[in-house]
Amino acid sequence: MPGRELGRERWEELWSDLTAMLRDGERRGRIETLRPEHDPALLAPPDRGSVCASVVYTYRRAGQPCLVCGTPIARTTHLARNLFWCPTCQAG
């Protein structure tokens, strides 16, 4: 959806989530932000060979199960860019 269609309340919620994720990424020294239960570096003991999609939820994982709900990851192209998402967790 275009940003101009969000409305003030939804924009504030989105901004709150984004700034929290950016602060977390800066604190951890990495761009990727994963839930702790999916981050191989945070598992005890650390699991470097984890099936945690190597720190991505959807990117380049078309057809593979979503780490959160198990739905196959979808893929399409838009303006020559590949887009990956979970149709359940990231439903429009």
Rank of each mutant, 00 (worst) to 15 (best):
P72K: 03
P46V: 04
R81L: 04
L34Q: 00
S16C: 12
E37N: 10
L42T: 00
T76I: 04
A80I: 09
Y57Q: 03
L83G: 06
L67F: 03
R60N: 10
C69R: 11
P65C: 02
P2E: 14
P65N: 00
T88S: 11
I73S: 00
L79F: 06
E9K: 07
C52E: 07
E26F: 15
T76V: 06
R30W: 11
H78M: 13
L42K: 06
R48Q: 13
A44V: 14
L18H: 06
V68Q: 05
R61P: 03
R8Y: 07
E9Y: 08
D24C: 15
A62C: 00
D39T: 00
N82K: 03
P46K: 11
R8T: 02
G49F: 12
C52S: 11
P72N: 08
S16M: 12
T58G: 06
L43G: 07
A80H: 08
P36E: 04
A62G: 03
V51L: 15
I73D: 06
R48N: 10
R28I: 03
P72S: 01
L34C: 06
E37Q: 13
E37K: 07
S16V: 08
P87E: 00
E13V: 09
R23G: 08
R27P: 07
A74Y: 01
P46S: 09
S54M: 13
A53E: 04
V51R: 12
E5K: 08
W11Y: 15
F84E: 02
A41N: 11
G70V: 10
M21Y: 11
E5W: 08
P72D: 02
M21T: 12
R10N: 02
S50W: 01
G3E: 12
L43Y: 09
T58E: 05
R23W: 12
H38M: 04
G3P: 02
Q64T: 01
G63N: 05
D39I: 04
V56N: 08
A74F: 08
R28G: 01
G7P: 07
T58K: 06
H38D: 08
P65F: 02
R28A: 06
R81D: 04
D47F: 13
R10H: 07
A20D: 13
E37F: 11
L22E: 14
